[in-house]
């Protein structure tokens, strides 16, 4: 069982265009500590493909993808734990 997930920061990137929301996520994760969970909300359809792909490729973890309404989606991402 996984405990409840604490989202420490949510970035509202609604209205930002491809690849803006992905960039916001990357900026957010850069300043996050290892294992920290942040969320980004996007209305750009490209995020549906690009964010999961980027998260997988970069070795971070996609914790959840939630539809907020007919336009917006929330992507919840946990920052990768770096090797010491």
């Amino acid at each position: 069982m996984v405990g409840p997930i604490m989202i420490s920061r949510e970035i509202d990137a609604r209205g930002s265009h491809c690849p803006g929301p992905l960039m916001e996520l990357i900026r957010g994760l850069k300043s996050a500590h290892d294992g920290e969970v942040i969320a980004v909300i996007s209305t750009d359809l490209g995020s549906n493909t690009d964010i999961p792909l980027w998260v997988q490729k970069s070795g971070n973890e996609l914790v959840a993808v939630e539809k907020i309404d007919h336009e917006a989606t929330r992507f919840v991402v946990r920052r990768r734990i770096r090797a010491r």
Partner: peptide, 11 residues
């Protein structure tokens, strides 16, 4: 600029 950004994002 968008292509460049996408490429940079993908490492």
């Amino acid at each position: 600029s968008i292509m460049a950004t996408g490429a940079a994002a993908m490492g």
